[in-house]
Simulated assay, not measured.
Amino acid sequence: MGRYRAPDPSSLTDYYSKAIGRALDVLDCFSDGETNLSLVEISKIKGFPESSLFRILFTLEAHGYLVRTADGSYKLAAKLLFGKLYDRAYSLRDIVHPFLKQLNTRFNESASMGFLFGDRIEVVDTLEAIQEIRRTNTLGRVLPPHCSSIGKAIVAFQERDVIDRILRINGLSRRTEKSITDHEQVLKEYEQIRTKGYSVDREESTPGGVCFGAPLHDERGHVVAAISVSVPLFRLSPEREEEMIGAVIDTARKASAAIASASPAAGAPRT
């Protein structure tokens, strides 16, 4: 039996609902929970007349798929948000994977990518070192925002209210004796991360392991994800540490540029 293929709307005019198709096209304008668009902006993106577009937006809002904000713009409602976030995360993973592979190959150490899903950071890609003793990661693993390099690299670049919410929801549990569990100290470290452009987990989440992370920026300049390279402490010399930090920063910069250039909405109006 052949593999199922989604129908082509242009070939099924007797069955295809143009009204539903337009509504879905409108929802596709919203890539994540931070995207706010006005009626005029959506009209320019999709080329729909404003009069018919208003009816679509009104209907989507009435059924709880869009929410209208105080300034009159629209954003995704909560019941659609996580599906969109997962689509977004795995789209970015495909873009970043070749860069992650280069990092993994260059040092023969484990390299990972994490993505911010609302209030939690989850591993969406990982490549392990070909070493008998190595740091490992697991797809789907939820990372602590205060003592993992990926978690730190993402959360440090969020707005203050978002940072406080993430820390409150995830907590500041002690994973090792080197974990920072004081709220103010965590905030100070985030400030240093924003200044330096990278994060370090030095035996804070796992004894005997060190991890260097750097943020990934999307086409709007927002930090939505991060990459890292992990190494057992006994394989880390000062020279190798310096090289790894430089490499993870450079790799994140190149991957961020690829994300921005690959985005179909890179030139669309955003707020």
Rank of each mutant, 00 (worst) to 15 (best):
residue 92 L to M: 15
residue 46 K to C: 14
residue 50 E to P: 02
residue 115 F to V: 03
residue 44 K to P: 01
residue 88 R to T: 03
residue 92 L to P: 01
residue 48 F to R: 00
residue 96 V to S: 03
residue 72 G to K: 10
residue 90 Y to G: 05
residue 99 F to H: 13
residue 87 D to N: 08
residue 100 L to A: 00
residue 114 G to E: 01
residue 84 K to T: 03
residue 46 K to T: 12
residue 114 G to D: 01
residue 113 M to A: 03
residue 60 L to Y: 14
residue 45 I to N: 02
residue 92 L to Y: 15
residue 109 E to D: 09
residue 78 A to M: 11
residue 96 V to H: 01
residue 48 F to K: 01
residue 69 T to R: 13
residue 80 L to D: 03
residue 89 A to V: 03
residue 101 K to Q: 14
residue 48 F to M: 10
residue 97 H to T: 08
residue 111 A to V: 06
residue 57 L to Q: 03
residue 114 G to T: 04
residue 87 D to I: 04
residue 48 F to A: 02
residue 94 D to P: 01
residue 43 S to H: 05
residue 67 V to F: 11
residue 109 E to K: 09
residue 58 F to H: 13
residue 113 M to N: 00
residue 112 S to K: 02
residue 109 E to A: 08
residue 99 F to N: 02
residue 64 G to T: 09
residue 47 G to Y: 15
residue 62 A to W: 05
residue 43 S to L: 04
residue 70 A to P: 05
residue 91 S to I: 01
residue 69 T to F: 06
residue 98 P to G: 06
residue 108 N to L: 12
residue 107 F to A: 05
residue 46 K to Q: 14
residue 98 P to K: 05
residue 112 S to G: 04
residue 67 V to D: 14
residue 114 G to H: 02
residue 107 F to E: 01
residue 49 P to K: 15
residue 88 R to P: 00
residue 80 L to W: 11
residue 59 T to E: 15
residue 45 I to T: 11
residue 74 Y to T: 07
residue 115 F to K: 00
residue 98 P to E: 10
residue 68 R to I: 05
residue 83 G to M: 06
residue 74 Y to C: 07
residue 79 K to H: 12
residue 53 L to Q: 08
residue 53 L to Y: 07
residue 92 L to R: 01
residue 91 S to F: 01
residue 98 P to N: 06
residue 80 L to N: 11
residue 56 I to Y: 03
residue 44 K to T: 07
residue 96 V to P: 00
residue 92 L to D: 04
residue 56 I to C: 06
residue 46 K to F: 09
residue 47 G to A: 14
residue 93 R to K: 09
residue 110 S to G: 13
residue 109 E to L: 07
residue 92 L to F: 14
residue 109 E to M: 12
residue 62 A to H: 12
residue 72 G to A: 10
residue 50 E to L: 10
residue 105 T to F: 07
residue 76 L to K: 00
residue 111 A to L: 08
residue 95 I to Q: 04
residue 72 G to Y: 14
residue 84 K to A: 08
residue 109 E to P: 03
residue 61 E to Y: 01
residue 101 K to R: 14
residue 67 V to E: 15
residue 94 D to M: 09
residue 69 T to C: 11
residue 68 R to D: 12
residue 90 Y to H: 11
residue 70 A to G: 08
residue 63 H to C: 13
residue 111 A to M: 05
residue 60 L to E: 08
residue 43 S to D: 04
residue 65 Y to C: 07
residue 91 S to A: 08
residue 72 G to D: 13
residue 112 S to Y: 00
residue 84 K to N: 05
